[in-house]
Design a protein around this nucleic acid. Sequence first.
DNA 1: TACACTTTGTGAAAATAGGAACAAATGCCA
DNA 2: TGGCATTTGTTCCTATTTTCACAAAGTGTA
Lengths: 216, 216
Amino acid sequence: MPKSKICIRKMCFSVETVKRLSLYLRDLRKLAKKKIELISSNKITQLLNISPAQFRKDLSYFGEFGKRGVGYEVKKLIKKLEEILGINKEWRIAVVGVGRLGSALLRFEGFSKFNIKIKTAFDISKKKVGKVINGIKIEDVRNLERVIKKEKIKLSLICTPPQVAQDITNRLVRAGIRGILNFAPVALKAPNNVFISNVDMACELERLIFLLNNER
Amino acid sequence: MPKSKICIRKMCFSVETVKRLSLYLRDLRKLAKKKIELISSNKITQLLNISPAQFRKDLSYFGEFGKRGVGYEVKKLIKKLEEILGINKEWRIAVVGVGRLGSALLRFEGFSKFNIKIKTAFDISKKKVGKVINGIKIEDVRNLERVIKKEKIKLSLICTPPQVAQDITNRLVRAGIRGILNFAPVALKAPNNVFISNVDMACELERLIFLLNNER
DNA sequence: TACACTTTGTGAAAATAGGAACAAATGCCA
DNA sequence: TGGCATTTGTTCCTATTTTCACAAAGTGTA
Ligand SMILES: NC(=O)c1ccc[n+]([C@@H]2O[C@H](COP(=O)([O-])OP(=O)(O)OC[C@H]3O[C@@H](n4cnc5c(N)ncnc54)[C@H](O)[C@@H]3O)[C@@H](O)[C@H]2O)c1
Ligand SMILES: NC(=O)c1ccc[n+]([C@@H]2O[C@H](COP(=O)([O-])OP(=O)(O)OC[C@H]3O[C@@H](n4cnc5c(N)ncnc54)[C@H](O)[C@@H]3O)[C@@H](O)[C@H]2O)c1
């Protein structure tokens, strides 16, 4: 498995770099709230358990944003990171499977900070279809392709049971979805031009258990 | 930040290896359900987007489990992986913060496959304390230290708002917790002998957005 | 202006992780 | 039994990622 790599501006970097950019942005926003206007690579990475050199190199793939001898202007860097990540414009997403996890996500307000808006949701259950949660109407999953296409939605979360997740993926891809965040514990197959990311809580817990179990 | 490394049996491997072990285990269980008794490194990794060499190498850190010319006995390998991961014995965990996400987790049955049992939960809200969800009584967070110590719980999930997550972490550590799975969007600080893992949905979504935004 | 300090941006070096390739086992069949 | 076909375990090589270390660039002060 060749680890995915991203190449722009003649340079290549890994997806890890992108994850770290999100972390930087989050911390910069906290600093901005505290009215801190200037920050050095040293200071900002102290909280994050990342080296200052890593911070500077991550940014260097996208341009020069600091001032030597001074540091980085917090507000300006926030703007730049929002641009780089692409969250300076609104992204409308869909949720498939409105069970315990799906409905927690529908009610979660935290995504709006990143300009992410849950536009529509789908379920198979008669009891749920037609209901409205947090302003989002739950559609019948039979209409999945039609609604996704009509709304031109490009990103979707999958919160269905694992048994149906691959089938849902296939349908989402056919409907034009380009990115999927999958919560079901199953490895999804999709064409190369569709990006898949997994949130795998069981894996994370097992890793912790392994570490506790293998100390010393 | 030196990437965390694990050393046992004179060999060192990365946490990525441990994550992959979880994935192998998950697929092996599916194979066992289908009554498949024997599997080669080639076959099992086809579904997972991992190379056969990687699979064999990951296992080699822990011993020899296959038979040359034949492959791996599914049932035996499952047992071995459960031992390696440490999920052959029960792990009792706590959940702090029983909001939308926390209560979804309390109701989730999927963890029992990994011998993980949510033993207790904590919240600060008067409305929630004393309630029972899925057989788990919600305790007042003021009793956190006492209950964790009494029950000898070593693992905890944090599902509180980010503002209080560090404070909760400090208290959990004082109470003897050794591993934390954190859902709050904040980088937690803890002593080196406490393992922290983060489930960061916003980061994952931002990464997908970045990829969609930077195609070609 | 000169000099002492800071801090960035980056090429080079060091550390890690991944993969090809092959000897060593094993099974099968004539 | 011997030869052929498989598939593992492991070595060694390659690619990627992280860190080091320093020139370049900026600030402040006398
Ligand atoms: N709840 C958790 O805490 C948790 C934790 C880890 C992983 N997960 C995973 O997340 C996923 C969702 O978990 P959950 O607890 O919300 O499950 P759930 O059973 O509460 O919800 C699943 C929802 O999917 C719907 N559904 C089923 N088939 C469908 C289909 N074909 N099309 C559309 N909708 C369909 C169901 O009607 C239900 O509303 C599962 O794969 C689970 O393994 C959940
Ligand atoms: N809900 C989601 O879909 C989602 C998605 C991504 C991240 N998160 C993160 O997960 C965390 C929980 O999210 P949520 O949506 O469940 O929030 P929520 O507000 O529904 O729940 C938070 C719970 O924590 C409790 N709480 C507050 N302070 C506490 C304290 N000091 N001690 C104990 N309990 C306390 C509250 O009473 C509440 O029940 C948040 O940090 C959130 O950012 C949630």
